[in-house]
Amino acid sequence: MVKKRQILVIGHNTSGCTPEHEKIAYDVGMEVAKSGSVLICGGLGGVMTAAAHGAKDGNGLTVGIIPQNDPAMANEFCDVVIPTGMGLARDFLNALSADGVIIIGGGSGTLSETTAAYMYKKPMVAIRNLGGSVEKFIDGFIDQRENVKIVGVDTPKEAVEKILELIAA
């Protein structure tokens, strides 16, 4: 049996998440499902809920890796809930569980997950012009090590196509 691709979608939690972020995240989730990949997210609100919702509506499998120890804290669109009880340290689990990462806006939590993925050289794409903590790194690197470039894209479909291309490379 061949392992399914696992794509982590990260971005704004409830705070800072706009209707535009939610629509884009939903569409990314739908595209992840269409690709036959598993959608991984932080399992909470905002971009995480919208992406998982889109993946569910696309008949995909969703995994929420939550910082709490109570699985009931996860959003209703998570098929598999992994309650870590680790707080923000779970950002490393999210990054390490992914074959590739799609970034949709986001604040400091998103930046934490991005840097974890960067340290482990995970392929990453970010949707441009959504603001957030990662915006200034799009089409570049986080630091002088140049571990992995954060590739900028403009649409949800392009995000999934590009991350699949980067994963296969």
Rank of each mutant, 00 (worst) to 15 (best):
T110N: 11
E76A: 09
G58A: 09
V32C: 11
D91G: 08
G42Y: 12
H53N: 13
P67Q: 07
A72E: 09
I104S: 10
G43L: 01
G109I: 05
V81I: 04
Q68Y: 09
S35T: 10
A52H: 05
A95C: 08
E31Y: 13
L96K: 15
V80R: 00
H53C: 07
N94F: 05
A89C: 00
R90N: 05
G109H: 10
I102Q: 13
A51N: 07
G58R: 10
S97P: 02
A51S: 15
C41G: 13
I82A: 06
G43N: 03
P83S: 02
G46Q: 12
N75V: 03
G109K: 11
G87R: 07
I66G: 01
G36I: 01
Q68P: 00
T62W: 08
N94S: 08
G46Y: 10
G60V: 05
T110E: 14
V47E: 11
D79C: 03
S108Q: 15
D91I: 02
C41L: 04
P83F: 00
I66Q: 01
G64P: 02
I103G: 12
E113V: 03
N69C: 00
V32K: 06
L39F: 07
S35F: 13
L44H: 06
R90S: 03
I40D: 07
L96F: 03
V80Y: 02
D99V: 06
A74N: 01
V32M: 12
D99C: 06
A95Q: 09
K34E: 15
F92R: 14
V63F: 03
T62I: 05
V101R: 04
N75C: 05
L96A: 14
N59K: 15
L44W: 04
K56S: 09
G87Y: 02
H53D: 05
D99Q: 01
L96R: 15
S37L: 14
P67C: 04
P71Y: 00
R90A: 03
E113T: 15
C78P: 03
A89N: 07
A89K: 10
P67E: 07
S35A: 15
G107R: 12
T62K: 02
A98Y: 01
G106C: 10
L111T: 09
I82V: 14
T49P: 03
F77A: 08
A55V: 09
I65C: 04
Q68T: 12
A55N: 01
M73W: 01
I65R: 04
I65M: 04
C78Y: 00
A50S: 15
S35E: 12
L44Q: 14
M48D: 08
L44A: 11
S108C: 02
